[in-house]
Structures are given as structure tokens and as C-alpha cells.
Amino acid sequence: EETGVRVELAEEDDGEKIAIKLWLRIEDIKKLKGKYKDNEAIEFSFDLERDVPEDVAQEMVESGYVCEGDHKTMAKAIKDRVSLIKRK
């Protein structure tokens, strides 16, 4: 499903790190509610043992990086990427 958002690794995952750096990349602004630039990327750290995707997305909303209306879309994108990383 195309959401307009993609999360990718910002650094090589060696399988050892607990906290990883990720990029939340805006790919299609028409599919989102907030005002973003095409190909805008937000770099953030995610602790694989402690962080919760919904909470991280909420922090982005509170910091003004993400529109409240896009919270669920961002949280799902983060959750999907993190579950792929954890499965390795």
C-alpha cells in the first residue's frame, strides 16, 4: 500500500546496535495531510528494545516535524520498517 512515506536505514545495521538511525522520507505529499517538501527526510534514532513506533511518531508531531493528521501513517511506516529489522 502506497502511503507517501518510506522509512529506511540511515546507517548500516550490523545486528549489534540497540539504537538505530532511520530516515522518515516523504515521497508523495499528495497522500499526506500536512505540508511537506517532496523527498523531505527526517532523521531519527530508534531504540529497538524500548521505543514504540506510535510514541516516536507522536514525538515528531509534538516537535512540529509531522502534522497530527499524518501521525498514524508515520507510525505504521516506522512499525513496518522496525519489524523487518527485528526479523533479521
Rank of each mutant, 00 (worst) to 15 (best):
L9Q: 03
D70N: 03
F44M: 04
M74T: 09
V56E: 05
P53R: 01
V66C: 06
L24I: 08
I29W: 11
E54A: 06
N39D: 10
E11H: 07
K72N: 09
S63L: 13
Y36R: 04
I85N: 02
G64Y: 02
K30A: 12
K31T: 06
A19S: 15
S45V: 14
E62H: 11
L9Y: 03
K76W: 02
I26H: 12
D80C: 01
R25F: 12
H71Q: 12
D28C: 07
F44C: 03
V52L: 10
D80P: 03
L9A: 05
W23G: 09
E16K: 10
E43K: 11
E54M: 04
V82T: 05
L48W: 00
A10E: 07
D38G: 12
L9H: 04
I29V: 15
R50G: 05
E27I: 15
E27T: 15
P53A: 12
E40S: 12
L32C: 07
M60A: 02
R25E: 07
I18P: 14
L22P: 09
H71S: 13
D38N: 13
E49I: 08
E49C: 07
W23L: 15
D51V: 01
P53K: 04
E62I: 09
D70H: 06
E43G: 10
E11R: 02
E59W: 12
G64R: 02
K21P: 04
G64E: 03
D14K: 08
M74P: 04
S63Q: 13
S83Q: 13
I18E: 14
V61G: 01
F46P: 01
R50F: 02
Q58H: 09
D28W: 02
K21G: 02
R25T: 05
I42E: 02
H71Y: 13
S83H: 10
R87M: 05
K86Y: 06
C67N: 13
L84W: 08
V5S: 01
E43S: 12
A75N: 06
V82M: 04
D28P: 00
V7M: 09
A19V: 15
K30R: 13
K17G: 12
G64C: 01
V7D: 00
V52P: 03
K35L: 06
L48H: 02
K76E: 08
L84V: 11
D55W: 03
K17E: 10
S83D: 15
Y65D: 09
V52N: 15
Y36H: 09
M74S: 01
E43Q: 11
V82Q: 01
D14M: 07
V56T: 02
R6F: 01
E68W: 06
A57I: 13
L48M: 10
I78A: 03
I29D: 15
I18F: 09
C67F: 12
G64V: 00
F46M: 06
L48I: 12
A41T: 15
R6M: 06
T73D: 02
L84I: 13
N39G: 14
L24F: 06
K79E: 12
K35H: 12
R87S: 08
A10Y: 08
S45E: 15
R87L: 06
D55Q: 13
R81T: 09
H71E: 11
E40A: 13
V5E: 04
E43Y: 04
V66S: 00
D80K: 10
F44E: 01
D14I: 11
E43D: 05
E40C: 11
A10I: 08
D70S: 02
S63E: 09
E62V: 08
L24Q: 09
E12L: 09
E11L: 01
R50Q: 12
R6A: 07
G4H: 03
K79Q: 12
S63K: 15
D13H: 10
K35R: 10
V61M: 02
L48S: 03
I18Q: 14
I29L: 12
A41D: 09
E59H: 11
I85G: 00
D14V: 10
V61R: 01
L9C: 07
A41W: 08
K72V: 10
K21H: 05
S83W: 03
V56L: 06
L48Q: 04
I78S: 00
K17A: 14
L48T: 08
I29C: 15
M74H: 03
S45L: 14
D55L: 13
V5Y: 11
F44K: 04
A19H: 13
K86R: 10
E8A: 03
W23E: 15
D51H: 00
Q58M: 13
L32P: 08
E12S: 10
E12F: 07
L84F: 10
I26L: 08
E27P: 08
